[in-house]
């Protein structure tokens, strides 16, 4: 997948617009997302391994929310499914769905950094 397929540009641009075009603050948000998401990805996998459905639901919920706000819509949809599995206690399905979660997240992180880089170079 190319960065533009991983991050929905309209959503990303909409977020920047909502921030009044403040690229620095957008950068802070992206950095916070990149700093907090690996823990959430690991938390999802640990919760599945421990059979802890409520923790799975909460971690997937947060990751979904943050990812969707930056336009990582496919990844957010994957998190949404995991959240639902956590809610219903379908841990076997969650196990299958989360198999490549860390790899997908790594793609999202790289694409997001690329989008931020582009936004920083674009005239306000």
């Amino acid at each position: 997948m190319t960065p533009s397929e991983i991050i929905d540009r309209a959503t990303f641009a909409g977020l920047l617009d909502n921030l009044g075009g403040d690229v620095d603050f957008l950068g802070e948000l992206v950095e916070t997302y990149l700093a907090s998401s690996p823990e959430l990805v690991a938390g999802i996998q640990q919760a599945i391994a421990a059979g802890d459905a409520p923790t799975l639901q909460r971690a997937a919920h947060s990751l979904k929310s943050g990812s969707a706000s930056f336009g990582a819509l496919a990844f957010a949809a994957q998190c949404r499914e995991l959240e639902e599995f956590g809610k219903t206690g379908a841990l076997a399905e969650a196990q299958l769905k989360s198999a490549a979660l860390a790899e997908v997240y790594a793609q999202v992180a790289a694409a997001l950094q690329a989008e931020l880089h582009t936004a920083r170079r674009s005239p306000a």
């Binding site: 909502n18 921030l19 603050f25 802070e28 948000l29 916070t32 997302y33 907090s36 909460r58 947060s62 929310s65 943050g66 706000s69």
Partner: peptide, 12 residues
């Protein structure tokens, strides 16, 4: 409980 939501709401 999610830091990104707190940051965005505070700012807005």
């Amino acid at each position: 409980d999610y830091v990104l939501n707190r940051m965005q709401l505070k700012r807005a």
